[in-house]
Design a protein around this nucleic acid. Structure first.
Lengths: 233, 233
DNA sequence: GCGTGTATTTTTGCATTCAAAACCGCGGAG
DNA sequence: CTCCGCGGTTTTGAATGCAAAAATACACGC
């Protein structure tokens, strides 16, 4: 028998067969992150009930939770809408995520195993290969995996949960931004080189600051991209 | 007429007459933070319904949201319990909060007005006075206000919301820890002196690192306190 | 033809209902 | 005496129902 699946207490990351409620929250979040609904679109309660084969009550509970996470917004008597992130929203999110990366870098150096370092080095090499081949999908995926691996190495479930939540909001956006800012890739690669080096030396303070600066740079790149998009339209 | 009260999108901090749902979430959170229920205690659904004069549906929606925040945990078919924070939980929370403080310090220096700095300096002096008089309640309250003021000065609603949420979990605990670790107060005061000085010079990088280190120190003090408490029982 | 006021439909928010699972007290077996 | 099992009660989780608000359709006046 599996262990009890606690909800709250940051245990929802378990892949255990969670309760219906937790399951619905996860499915709803994924559905949104995968971009089936356009930003600003009304969320069709009735339709999602049919899709998930549940009644309105559990769906509405999930909507409130996802709204609290910031993926959607609830307009009184007007239903739920897919959150429209402005440039300022994204900027704010990146600044918080940069803080998570800072903490992750510091703690990871203190807590990661040698095998953990090797694993991240391998990911880094793979990412470098993808960079050379200009395979942006792989590059992006590996990039994400490296950051996640460092966050996980910090061995702090609270950090991991918050990081995941904040990232959900910007995942899609970041990909498009990377796509259109190819020229930024070489800088990002250089920054990653430095990060891996600091990790290898377990220089926590240095890694933390590097990761923070790295995310601030990304923040600026993404925001610039958003402004271009906005101007174009 | 008042503006629309958005929920999600981090607008819930507004003091606007929020929807019933947002209101219930706030009341429930406050009720928990104020410590009316002992950690580990079952949350009496029926009773809270009567207290808040609502039916079970909106209360249960609020329970899921507060569970996602980590204040309570939901045990399938066994109801909601007030979260029992272990020493490890608190340690993890403090590490994340330290990250928020780091970001807040950096951004505040870049964005705060001169008047804002003056206001914080005043709070600092008041806190110093409370420290000299050993008025711990005031000291603690002013301490919190200073940290909050710096976070607000960062002008990042995402940061503010996350900070508030993380702090809710440890507010009570931190107070008891301060109470019993009087000898740590002078160190804390010295650290605060340095922070105010860095803020005055708008030395963001320095302030960020000072605040991070300050919270790490607090983390250790609180965790030590928790271990003592645990050993004593 | 276009804007406006009104009636109808739909959707939302909450209360209530209902089945199922957990709790509880008690009796019996080991 | 302790442990297990069993029926009744309580509590939980989810579906449904219902009133109110919003969206929509539509007719009327300009």
């Amino acid at each position: 028998m599996n262990t009890i699946t606690r909800i709250g207490g940051y245990e929802t990351l378990n892949s255990a067969p969670a309760s219906l409620h937790a399951d619905v929250v996860t499915r709803l979040r994924d559905y949104l992150v995968e971009g089936h609904l356009l930003p600003g679109a009304r969320i069709p309660e009735r339709e999602l009930c049919e899709r998930f084969e549940i009644s309105r009550t559990p769906l509405r509970e999930a909507l409130k939770v996802v709204a609290a996470e910031g993926l959607i917004e609830l307009l009184p008597h007007r239903g739920a809408r897919v959150r429209q992130f402005t440039e300022v929203d994204i900027r704010n999110l990146f600044e918080v995520i940069a803080g998570y990366d800072f903490v992750a870098g510091r703690l990871a150096c203190a807590r990661i195993t040698d095998d953990g370092i090797s694993a991240i080095e391998r990911l880094h090499l793979e990412m470098y290969a993808a960079y050379l081949r200009r395979e942006l999908t792989d590059y992006f995926r590996l990039n994400q995996m490296i950051h996640l691996a460092i966050v996980d190495a910090a061995a702090n479930p609270v950090l991991s949960a918050n990081y995941a939540s904040a990232n959900a909001a910007i995942r899609r956006l970041r990909f498009s931004a990377n796509l259109l800012n190819r020229d930024r890739l070489s800088d990002a690669m250089r920054e990653h080189e430095g990060m891996i080096d600091a990790l290898r030396r377990r220089a926590g303070e240095e890694l933390g600051l590097l990761m923070y600066a790295h995310m601030q740079t990304k923040r600026d790149a993404v925001c610039e991209f958003m402004r271009e998009q906005a101007d174009a339209s």
